[in-house]
Every structure is written in structure tokens, then in C-alpha cells.
Design a binder for these strands. Structure first.
Lengths: 222, 222, 222, 222
DNA sequence: TATGAATGAGCCTTCATTCAT
DNA sequence: AATGAATGAAGGCTCATTCAT
């Protein structure tokens, strides 16, 4: 806590922010271990000591970068997803497909691509920052899918719902995490918007078909 | 002086072999950048220079480790998967479910867990070794799923088949790659065999339901 | 806290400077390959990383050391040599002998002995730095001798002048480069000032006699 | 000492010899410190351990290499030089010029060029092997020049003779040791036979003129 | 006799970090 | 508040050498 009258040190509009923005990109495409503080500082046009000055350590920089990336990139996006998944003016099929579509676009076509990268890195090689990410970023989006899926699960069993949600996310995740492999197998050079569109369509249809099929054999355990 | 009948001094388990086995484990849980050859050598009870002597460089060690891990861990496993997917004494549903089940068990319950880790690391941060892995390890297993799925796709469109295969793999991958996240969301402490079993059952059922559902609307393009 | 009037903390003699001065000596008597930056740093009371911080690499340190040694050790010396070789108030014989004498003293009796060593090392095992040394150090001194010799070459043929200059330098060089051999052959323990004086006298006389002899047979090609 | 009846182990005609021949070349153009035993062994198609097996250590290899090079390259060459310098059927001028010429050709145009390089390296950075080289190689050749020069020195003062000999050798040495510099100053691309010939002519003429000039002022001490 | 494997010291370099302004 | 200089630990790698056949 600063004294109330502190002359509001007027945080340099720049360095710290520049450091975060740069670090996000670098951490995203190199990973934590392969990222050097020197590289980040150079790209951010800051002194070598800047990271330690502003953040205390490389690790702290990483944590702060994740936090910053989250506050920067969620906002209305996630909120809109949640409200859509709860709209009662739509059929459950419309709601499911719409939710998947919105969820998927946010994932496959995210503007700042490093943001997704950063999240995925954290998911596959979790650090201490994972809890926060689950709570603030992944959790709410997961909940939106839960809402869209729930109406299809007769007894509302939470575990069953969750497995379905994971089936949806998994299908999409494949293309983010194993992108290079997928392209090789599909014999495509890269993910164009057309391919991304087709994938989203497929995932939505695949999922819908499966869930619609549940009713007729709801006797069988899932 | 050894006794003259010394049983062929029994070439010690082999520094080179020990190095590979150790490196596999370390690369798997630390990643390439965060792994030090000093650490690998110490664990393998070998000299610091051993890696460079046997493999030339850290990078070459990585490549050789991947290669070694593959030749070690595929063999009959993949072969059996391929033949099962082609059995014509089974209904297509039995074939699909059985193939998924076998594929999934190899993935979720793989004995040397570091093997999967190593593969996934390579999938998500590809190096030059990826091509080889796709050709020799991932490709054949992907093909098995293609065979099991194909009968459900009326026109046999390759792209459609592939997207279905990826939907299957994606569902399973989620639990490997985002395992930590999944556990947090499922509020489970760890992946026990029971949980793994339930997941496999779910994926098989989820997929079967979706594919069975295709018939009734086979006019729409997927 | 320093007193407010602290005399401009007097930038310590300068790690960088200390490194150069030390490196010069060590490179001079060990050669590039046999010199370790650890040794240089220790002698310069600097950290092992200091060389890389200040110069980027061992090789760069070498280049900078040569450059530094040159700017340090030429100055008026070379300038004075050039003006002397051009004095027109002297006979050509006086000019020749005087120039050789000055040139030789700079070579045989140079104060910082490592400077000559460094130059000679570079001459006999040239690196990329040689061009610079020729341009900035050896070239001008060579020119001075050219001026002193030229009056003796009737037709002023450049090549002939150059060969004479090299004959002069060669005679002196012998004692620097093959010093150890020379001492063994002369059965002297070391180069004392007396010996150096005698050598200089001899070279001057030897050369003068040869050049004076040119006139009487200037018809013969050299 | 081996037992007299040892089956004369019939030293492999190869490895050891090959090692020496290779080492000579490598030491010659890299210097001692920059030469690696591995490189030598690889080029000689021998095992890494071969040097230590045959010579005990890198240093011993160096010494043996020098010794080997000398016994290989002197022989009749030096002997012929000595007899020429003593021929009494020639005028002293003819003897001087002829001796210089022969000496120079052995030096500037030596067939195995690495041999000269090796000698010069040893001259400029002497090791323990220098004594042997002076005694067995340099010394005799120096003596030949002494004989050719002596007749010009009235009082036969040894020191005076030696200085003259060194003046001769120095002139030639310049082109071997400072070859790169000389070429730069002469603006020649490389030492062709024409240039070498011109240099030898010049040195012989330059020296002869100087010594002939001695007579007229033989009163002055040199 | 000769060699592939192995060793440990030490190389240059890079790292995150701290110091002294 | 911010930075250039400096640090020491460690990194990957190479070296001459020795070991065990």
C-alpha cells in the first residue's frame, strides 16, 4: 500500500507493459525454458536488468505474463459464450451447435495467436499458474459447454456431462496441439480459414449426432 | 585378471543403451530445453562426455532417443491394431468399438508412460524428428482407425474419414495433453484405471453413436 | 553512500582496459590457441564472463587486442620515422643509416616487448586482423624505408626498392623471430643492449655498403 | 632392450609412420596447441588411442615428429651445401653466390613445404626440441654460409662472420615467415617460381655487393 | 598389438541475477 | 526509477588420456 499522497509515480506507460507483451509472444513460441530474459528485454527495447527490476525474476515474469494475457483476452468473449449457452429462446440443438461454434472459433481463430499458444503450453506443461488459468479462463468456458450439453443427459449426471464436454474440446484441441501432425496426415500445407471452417462444422455435426443418438438408447449406460 | 572361462565379460548393459533409456525419461518430463546432458549422464551413471561420445550432441541424442523409443514401443501393438481393424468376421460396429478400445488403451494405459509423453511433446513442439514419428508410429495407427471408420462414410470421402479419425484421437488426446486440467475439472486426484476405463468406454460410445447417426442423414454433406 | 563530492567515482581503471592489457601479454607469449580466456580473466582480476560481456567472444577479444595494441604503440614513433626519412638536409647515406637505425631500435628495443611479439605472431600466422595491421602499422613503417632506399635505385623501380626494403627488415626480423636460434649460434645467453647495438650497427653498415655498391654496376639488373 | 631372440615384432609398416607423416603436416600448419590428436589420428586412419599407444603423449609425438622430419629431409642436401662452400676451384664470389643460391633454394622451394613450416614454427616458438634442430639441421647449414662468408672478413672475427650469415638468412627468412605480409606489400597474389627466383637473385646480389664493398674500408671495424 | 569405449578436466559461452550508481 | 557493468553457476562440448579387452 502506497501512501495516499504518493505523487502517483506515473508508471512509465511503457517498459513494463512492453515487457509483458513481448514476453507473451516469446514464451508462447519458445516455451519457458527456452526463453531467455535477454531476448525478451532486447525485443522490448529494455535493459537486461529490466525484468528483474520490474518482476523480480524470470519465473515471476512468466506468471505475470499469463495473468496479463488472460485479463487482456477474455472479457466479453467468454461472457458472451456463457449467455449464449443459457439462451432459452433456442432449441437445445441450436444452443449446442451455436455454443460449439462460438467456442471453436475462439479457439481456432483467436486473433492474438500467441494467447492460445500460451494457454496450451500451460495446459500441457503446467506450472503454478495453472490453477489461476483454470479458474479464470478455462473454467468459465468449460461451464458454457456444460450448459449446452446438459439437456441431452437425461439424469443430469455431472460426470457424464463432463466427459461429453471433454469430447468436444478434445476434438478441437487436436488441431491446435497436434496441428503439425494433422496437417501432415491431411496432406494440407497449413490451416487456412476454409479448413478451419470445415473442422468446426464437422465437430459440431459429429457431436450433435452423437448426442441426438443418446435418447434412443438411454437405457444403456454411457 | 579374469578367469579364463569368464562368460564373455557380458558387455555391461551398455552405456549407450542406458543413456537412451534415461534420456527418454528425462526428455519426456522436462522437455528438450530444460533437460541437461549432465543430468542425463548422472542418472545413467555415465560420464558427462558420454553423450557426446555416443551421439555427437545433445540434439542427436534427442533424435536417437525418439527413434529408439519408437522401435521399442510399437512392434506387435500396432500390427495387431491394423489386423483387428481389418477383420471381416465382425460387424462394423464391433470393429469400430474394438479398434477404438485397443487404440485408446495403447494411448492411455501405455506401460512406459514416458513413451507417450515423448511422442506428445514431439507432436506439440515438433522438431525435425516429427516426420519419422508420423511415418513410423502415428501414421500406421491412424490408418487402423481409418479402416474402422470408413464403412460408415457412404461415399468413402477421404477427408471426411480423416476428420472422424481425428475426432476420435482428439477425444483421447485431451486426457493426455490436458490431463492436469481435466483432473481439476473432474475433481479427481489422478487418473486411476477406473477413470481410464470409463473414458475409453465413453469415447467409444460417443463415437459409435455419432457414426450410427450418419445413416439417417447421409444426404447432407458432413 | 558516497560523499556528495566524491571525485567522480573514478571509473575503476576499467575492466575492459585491464582485459585488453592482459590479453595482449598472454596472446603474445602463448599464441591464440594456447591462450584461455580463463587465464586472461584471472590475471585481469575479472570474471570469466567478462570477456564475453565486453568483447563477445575470444576471437573478438583477439582482434580488439591487436587493434588496441596498435593504437597504443605507434603514434609519434612512426610519424617521426616518416619525417626523418624525408629530411632533405641530410645526405642520402645519412638518411638511410638514420632511418634504419630508428626503424631497428623500434623493433629490437621496443618497450612493451609483448607488442612486437603480438605483431610477429600475426605476421607468421595471419588471421583476419592482418590487413588492418599492414595498413595501419607495418605499411607506414615500410614506406619510411622505401623513401630512404629510393635515392639509391637509379630507375626508381618500385619492385627493386621493395626488395631492398625487405632485405633490411629481414635482417632485423631474424633476431626477433629466430632469436632463440641466433643466441644459440652466437653463443650468447640473451640479447643485451650491447648485442642489440652491435646488430643495428651491422645491419646499417651492411646495407649501406650494398647500396653504395649499386652505382658502379648499375647496368646489371639487380 | 628387447630379448635378443624376440621375434622382431615386425613393426607394422604403417600406423606409426603414417602418424608421423600426418602429424608433421598438421603441426606445420596449425601449430602445436591448435593441433588435436583426434584430427591427426583420423587423417592417419588410426585409432584415437594410437598416438598415446605409439608415442606416449601428444608432446612426445611432437618431438618425434620433429626428429623424423629432420632425418627425412636433410641428408645429401646439407652435405652437398657444405662441400660446395668449401670448393677451392671457385673464386670466393662464385662460392658465396653459389652457396647462397643453394641455401636459398632449399629454403624457399623446399619440396615438402610442411618441413620448412615445422622448422620455422620451432624457431619462432621454441620447445625442448630446438636444441636438436639447431645441432642437426640448422647448425650445419649455418656453417656452410660461414665458410662462404669468411674469406671476406679480413681478420676472420667470428662474431662478424656470424652477423653476416644472419643477414643472409634473415633476408630469406623474411619471405618465409612474413610471407603473407610481403605479398601484401608487393601486391602479389602468391609466391610463384618467378618471384622466388627474383628474390634469390636479389639476395645474392645484395649480399655480394655489400661484402665486396668491405675491402675498400676494411680498416673500419664492421 | 591395437582399439573402441570411457573418463574427467577444462574449454568457450550463456544464463539469470545483482551491484553500483 | 532505471541501467550498464559485473558476477558465478552452469551449459554443451572437446580434449588428451586411460581402461578393458
Amino acid at each position: 500500500m502506497r501512501s495516499r499522497l504518493a505523487p502517483l509515480p506515473r508508471r512509465d506507460p511503457g517498459t513494463r507493459e512492453r515487457l509483458l507483451a513481448t514476453a507473451a509472444r516469446v514464451f508462447a513460441d519458445r516455451g519457458y525454458a527456452a526463453t531467455t530474459i535477454r531476448d525478451v528485454c532486447k525485443r522490448a527495447r529494455a535493459n537486461v536488468a529490466a525484468v528483474n527490476y520490474h518482476f523480480g525474476s524470470k519465473e515471476q515474469l512468466y506468471v505475470e505474463t499469463l495473468r496479463w494475457a488472460m485479463t487482456l483476452c477474455q472479457g466479453e468473449d467468454t461472457a458472451e459464450l456463457l449467455t449464449f449457452a443459457a439462451r432459452d429462446d433456442l432449441s437445445r440443438a441450436e444452443r449446442l451447435v451455436g455454443t460449439i461454434r462460438r467456442f471453436a472459433l475462439g479457439m481456432l481463430a483467436a486473433r492474438p495467436s500467441w494467447h492460445q499458444h500460451l494457454m496450451f503450453r500451460e495446459m500441457t506443461s503446467p506450472t503454478l499458474a495453472l490453477d489461476r488459468i483454470v479458474d479464470e479462463f478455462l473454467g468459465p468456458r468449460f461451464d458454457a459447454l456444460r450448459r449446452a450439453v446438459a439437456p441431452y443427459v437425461a439424469d443430469g449426471d455431472r460426470r457424464t456431462v463432463d466427459l461429453h464436454v471433454m469430447s468436444i474440446i478434445g476434438q478441437l484441441l487436436y488441431h491446435k496441439l497436434a496441428g503439425a501432425v494433422a496437417l501432415r496426415l491431411l496432406k494440407e500445407p497449413s490451416y487456412g480459414p476454409a479448413l478451419a471452417g470445415r473442422i468446426v462444422d464437422h465437430v459440431a455435426a459429429f457431436t450433435l449426432r452423437s448426442l441426438e443418438g443418446r435418447r434412443r438408447r438411454s437405457r444403456r449406460k454411457d
